[in-house]
């Protein structure tokens, strides 16, 4: 936080998301959280600049969604007045284009969401970029705690709301977890004013992806409790019977201790008392 410290150059890779219910194009949730996090870095390095980078097709739907990120600008000077779109044909692998761009003008920090909301959504992109750039990668970022020189201390999300403190050396690639601070509201005005700078870029077709069959997700079959019992009756009951303890058990006229026992038993069964 020394006054002479340079601002941080942050590149936020943003994608076009899909709303989970309607599938409409929107700013992707994790990418937006990533941008929020990048904007919060100004608290550590006041002169930090955020670069918005997207590689993909250019069409109306995508543009509306991408403007969602521009709408997060508050005031001038944050770098959010412009989004660079590396134009890619349909079915292109965006990694080469992004890697080329990032290697040409390397930022100190690359922020992305954990995975895309459409297409393969494998979440591999940040890893491949980190590999190509030779930078360390930290996944599941929730919060940046401090930045000193070229070291950034951050919190990583673990399951069940737990957190781990990690220090990483910059330049680095970080992916943002869904538990990071939610993105601010995208405002119409700045979104409308912001410019999208379309640039030509390396276009490598994703041939493997083209060969795959895509279909809407099927519901996965629920695994039955496998009961290795000798008794046919027990096996039948396990397969066809209702789950134990269900069906609205009602305890009246019990002592508080009995009630507590019953509740604890259910909590144990459900495995939340760990």
């Amino acid at each position: 936080m020394q006054p002479e410290s340079r601002g941080l150059e942050v590149a936020v890779l943003v994608s076009v998301g899909r709303h989970p219910v309607t599938g409409r194009a929107r700013r992707a949730d994790q990418d937006a959280r990533g941008l929020e996090l990048a904007l919060s870095l100004a608290a550590f390095r006041p002169d930090s600049r955020v670069r918005l980078l997207h590689a993909g097709q250019r069409d109306d739907d995508n543009e509306t969604a991408l403007r969602g990120y521009l709408g997060m600008a508050r005031g001038v000077g944050t770098g959010l007045e412009r989004l660079t779109l590396l134009e890619q044909p349909e079915g292109a692998d965006v990694v080469p284009a992004l890697a080329e761009r990032l290697a040409a003008t390397p930022p100190q920090l690359v922020v992305t969401g954990a995975r895309a909301e459409q297409g393969e959504g494998s979440g591999l992109l940040p890893y491949v970029l980190a590999e190509r750039l030779g930078w360390p990668l930290v996944n599941g970022l929730v919060e940046v705690e401090s930045i000193e020189d070229d070291r950034m201390t951050l919190l990583q999300a673990l399951p069940r709301g737990q957190r781990r403190r990690i220090q990483v050396r910059l330049p680095a690639v970080v992916t943002v977890d869904g538990a990071a601070a939610p993105a601010r509201q995208s405002a119409f005005g700045p979104a409308r004013r912001g410019s999208i700078k379309v640039e030509a870029a390396l276009a490598v077709p994703d041939e493997a992806f083209a060969g795959w069959t895509l279909s809407p997700a099927r519901k996965r079959p629920r695994r039955l409790k496998i009961v290795k019992s000798a008794s046919a009756r027990d096996r039948f009951k396990a397969a066809a019977g209702k789950a134990q303890g269900g069906g609205g058990q009602l305890l009246t006229d019990v002592t508080p201790e009995q009630a507590a026992e019953a509740i604890l038993r259910l909590l144990e069964e459900e495995g939340v008392m760990r």
Partner: peptide, 17 residues
């Protein structure tokens, strides 16, 4: 406040989204 500042309070932003 909403269109320029993006500052709808409470659950406003969520509702608008």
């Amino acid at each position: 406040l909403t269109l320029e500042r993006g500052n709808t309070p409470g659950k406003g932003a969520e509702v608008l989204d």
